[in-house]
Write a protein that binds this DNA or RNA. Structure first.
Length: 882
RNA sequence: GGGGAAUUAACUCAGCUGGUAGAGUAUCUCCUUGACGUGGAGGAAGCCGUGGGUUCGAGUCCCUCAUUCCCCACCA
């Protein structure tokens, strides 16, 4: 007897060991191998800020399935892992840590020391994330692990910056940007989340200089009044035409500001007169440029009011708002306050309300880069799965504005720009220059700012493969095959990878973008810290195992849509693993020392052997097709159905007669097929549930090495046996019907019935003959006999049928006649309904003319079948009624 | 304001290119049959959101409406 497994499936017994074994054997390693076709996926690098959550688990499970599937299919499969420095998020965390441990600010600590702290953080948390990924079973090539701030990635970042600068696609300028007063840094448009909030709409009147009148404006942010440098009206607005060119007096500050005409103003909106604050509103900034208005920025970096804010200096922005509104009221200049729904931008990291303000920053000119990125998707070079996400992608790129890439942070790639203190020249260079390129001064300062995190992740597909060097890896593995990510970061990342790769590699970064949804809690809510409904993947793994977690995340999930995560689903997944585990135990305990392979069988295959092998091949075909179309949920469902419903519920049960019988050849054949099909299941299931499949694989005879590197099952057209499948279907129908009758008649288990069969066709006779052992073992039949003529059929019996044969079970002493008549009447109703339905179709001229011939034939055959059934039923009922 | 998605059995969701509706969970009945009670056998349960259209035929394609959700947007 071969190996044994413990009675209950307990993943804790082996998951760690199995993973360790894979690692040691180097199975995750991918090399440049010209004899194989490459297949590569770049892991979206998790942030080093924290722990893995279920979203990561989903993201990585999908990638691991694809990678394992391709690896088994003979590709040189590279899954490149890594982590992201997450500039803002990490800096905030490290600042907090420093404050807590040392009681000082980052400025007090100094740049150098601060960076040391941040690197220490990276070491700790970067390591932790890798460990977590390994628990999940992720088969990344860890030898190639990268970090967005490692030497190579940093060199790529500098190279890209310099090249874009030289090409005129990066520039420095004083523009309106999004400012987070809490993180104290600028943000790109993508990093701002807009939220609709109920707020006030304050109507304020500004006096007109030298006149008695006023001009009334409306604002949702009164504190920005301090920075007003004009009032604008529409040039055609009759109400205000006479005021154009006059001077308004800014309340409280008493600054004189012009009343100007600009078509930007919508006369229908608000009062039709707009306060213009060039430093604190993007539109006003444009108006200001057009009219050459002064720029007065009234806020500090923490959004408090600066010295230009007159009496409000030092106040926080909302404090100032309150005070100013009060003052306006006292001055009699506040006309009214209306309630108004408007959208307020928030920082995507700390959720503080973002302040638009002017600031000196670095930008990437987007228009020339966006165009080729749009084309790459339009011409089908890059495909989104599901397709609809290309709309999101196009919309974003078609409306894109220049990308603000500088951040007022230390943790990140420092901008390679050097300022000359003497002549103010800016030198952008790959290496710190010794002297100013213009005046040769050595009074140079490097820009203090760091780059947007996404600037470096945009290069991820090629910076990780050695770019700007033309390494063999880069040539071999790029473009990558699939990018797997959530729909929430299409803007942040996908878009930027595409234009970066097109610009610098002159090719697409990936061929497919597989988009998945969010993992929500059982009530469908987003998982979040504040709700406290987050689920820790490690805890799930601890309780149910990584395989069950992976199963839960994939089962019933279709690309692009969100999913709910619940305890019940985990239990179902665990139960499936347990089922497979026990099926294996069954196989193992029935094997003998020598197990023949499929090639060395002495006996011919039985009906159920051919059937299960045919079904396995069909399943293989479907699963492979599904995987190729990224339909992972469907693929898994099919493996599940085959394993549980066909292999366990039918095939295993049917082999028992041979396994426990005296015929050694038949016994060995059953053993061989049981093992063979189980191996097939393990290989198909391995990408989804790597641990249990490996653990089981190792216990089976005639396996070499690991299931992880076993070949994906090859096509075996010759295994398809449609006739056997049909025969089995009929036999299964017979067995089910008899079981059904027994259940309805409440026949005790101990009572074995005789079965008498009237077979009209040779085929049905064969099915019953071949199926006799199974009718006995699975349907509680004592013996089977054939009747020559229908007239010989017993009267006091229950009956059922399969195509071509009537089956009688004489249970005279047990059956309730009325009940049986009732049962038959019900069947008759069903048959009548079916005949009616089919007749309807067949008498439909259109159907007969236009439907495919095959379908018409099928319907005709069905009709004949039901009519035959009806005749038999009617006869039976008549007989019983006597 | 623009775009997208969802609406299928009590619950959570599948359902590819149109051909008589599926799974898991829950529920009901029975079963300690030599892998598994994390199990086995059987059952009940669906006008596939509304109204129209295309078609011989629509859960599946097109339009309308309703409800819910998501994304985008410089409505001062």
């Amino acid at each position: 007897m071969a190996n044994q497994l413990p009675k209950n499936y307990d993943p804790k017994d082996f998951e760690k060991k199995v993973y360790q074994d894979w690692l040691e054997k180097g199975y995750f390693r991918a090399e440049v191998n010209e004899n194989k076709t490459p297949f590569s996926i770049m892991l979206p690098p998790p942030n080093i800020t924290g722990a893995l959550h279920l979203g990561h688990a989903l993201d990585q499970t999908i990638q691991d399935i694809l990678i394992r599937y391709k690896r088994m299919s003979g590709f040189e499969a590279l899954w490149m892992p890594g982590t992201d420095h997450a500039s803002i998020a990490t800096e905030v965390k490290v600042v907090e840590k420093v404050k807590e441990e040392k009681g000082i600010s980052k400025k007090e600590l100094g740049r150098e020391k601060f960076m040391e702290e941040a690197w220490a953080w990276r070491d700790t948390y970067g390591r932790r994330i890798v460990e977590q990924m390994q628990q999940l079973g992720s088969s990344c090539d860890w030898d190639r692990e990268r970090f967005t701030m490692d030497e190579g990635c940093s060199a790529a970042v500098t190279e890209v910056f310099v090249r874009l600068f030289e090409k005129g696609l990066i520039y420095r300028g004083n523009r309106i940007i999004n400012w987070c007063p809490d993180c104290k840094t600028s943000l790109s448009d993508a990093e701002v989340e807009h939220e609709d909030k109920m707020g006030n709409f304050w109507h304020v009147k500004y006096p007109i200089k030298g006149e008695d009148g006023f001009i009334e404006i409306a604002t949702t942010r009164p504190e920005t009044i301090l920075g007003d440098t004009a009032v604008a009206v529409h040039p055609d607005d009759e109400r205000y035409k006479h005021l154009i060119g006059k001077i308004a007096i800014l309340p409280v500050l008493n600054r004189e500001i012009p009343i100007i005409a600009d078509t930007y103003v919508d006369p229908e909106f608000g009062t039709g007169a707009v306060k213009i604050t060039p430093c604190h509103d993007p539109n006003d900034f444009e108006v200001g440029v057009r009219h050459d208005l002064p720029q007065i920025r009234v806020m500090n970096d923490d959004a408090s009011i600066n010295e230009l804010g007159g009496p409000y200096v030092g106040m926080a922005r909302y404090e100032c708002r309150k005070a100013l509104v009060k003052d306006l009221e006292e001055l009699g200049l506040l006309v009214e306050v209306k309630e108004r729904n408007h959208s307020v931008g928030h920082c995507y990291r700390c959720h503080t309300a973002v302040e638009p303000l002017t600031s000196e920053q670095w930008f990437v000119r987007m228009e020339p880069l966006a165009k080729p990125a749009i084309d790459a998707v339009k011409d089908g070079s890059i495909k989104f799965v599901p397709e609809r996400f290309d709309k999101t992608y196009f919309h974003w790129l078609e409306n894109i504005r220049d990308w603000c890439i500088s951040r007022q942070l230390w943790w990140g790639h420092r901008i390679p720009a050097y300022y000359c203190d003497d002549c103010q020249e800016i030198t952008v260079a790959r290496q710190a220059p010794d002297a100013c390129s213009k005046c040769n001064s050595t009074n140079l300062r490097q820009d203090e700012d760091a780059l947007d995190t996404w600037f470096s992740s945009a290069l991820w597909t090629f910076s990780t493969l050695g770019w700007p060097e033309q390494t063999p890896e880069l040539k071999y593995f790029h473009p990558t095959d699939v990018l797997v990510t959530g729909y929430d970061i299409i803007f942040f990342w996908v878009v930027r990878m595409v234009f970066s790769s097109l610009e610098f590699m002159e090719e697409i970064p990936f061929k497919h973008v597989l988009i998945h949804g969010l993992v929500r809690d059982a009530q469908g809510r987003k998982m979040s810290k504040s709700l406290g409904n987050g689920v820790d993947p490690l805890q799930v793994i601890d309780e149910f195992g990584a395989d069950a977690l992976r199963y839960t995340l994939i089962q019933g999930n279709s690309p692009g849509s969100d999913m709910r995560f619940s305890q019940e689903k985990l239990e179902a997944a665990r139960n499936f693993a347990n089922k497979l585990w026990n099926a294996t135990r069954f196989v193992l305990m029935n094997l003998e020392e020598e197990v023949p392979t499929m090639e060395t069988l002495a006996d011919s295959l039985a009906l159920e052997d051919e059937w299960i092998l045919s079904r396995l091949e069909r399943t293989r075909q479907e699963v492979t097709a599904n995987l190729d179309k990224f339909e992972l949920g469907l693929a898994l469902q099919k493996i599940y159905d085959f394993t549980w419903n066909e292999y366990c519920d039918w095939y295993i049960e049917m082999t028992k007669t041979r396994l426990y019988g005296d015929n050694e050849d038949a016994r060995k054949t059953a053993q061989a097929v049981l093992t063979e099909v189980l191996k097939g299941i393990l290989r198909l299931l391995h990408p989804f549930m790597p641990f249990i499949t490996e653990e089981i694989w190792q216990t089976l005879p005639n396996t070499i090495g690991s299931v992880m590197v076993a070949p994906w099952p090859k096509a075996m057209e010759e295994a398809l046996k449609p006739q056997m499948e049909t025969r089995m279907e009929h036999l299964m129908t017979a067995i089910r019907n008899i079981r059904n009758i027994r259940a309805e008649m409440n026949v005790p288990h101990s009572v074995k019935a005789a079965l008498q069969v009237v077979a009209q066709t040779e085929e049905s006779r064969q099915i019953i003959t071949m199926g006799t052992p199974y009718l006995k073992s699975l349907a509680g039949i004592a013996d089977v006999s054939f009747l020559e003529k229908e007239e010989d059929a017993p009267n006091l019996a229950v009956s059922t049928m399969i195509p071509g044969a009537q089956l009688y079970i004489p249970l005279a002493e047990l059956i309730d006649l009325d009940k049986e008549i009732q049962r038959l009447e019900k069947e008759k109703e069903k048959a009548l309904a079916e005949i009616k339905r089919v007749e309807g179709k067949l008498s439909n001229e259109g159907f007969m003319k236009k439907a495919p011939e095959k379908l018409v034939e099928e319907e005709k055959a069905k009709k004949a079948g039901f009519e035959e059934m009806l005749v038999t039923l009617e006869k039976r009922i008549a007989e019983l009624k006597i």
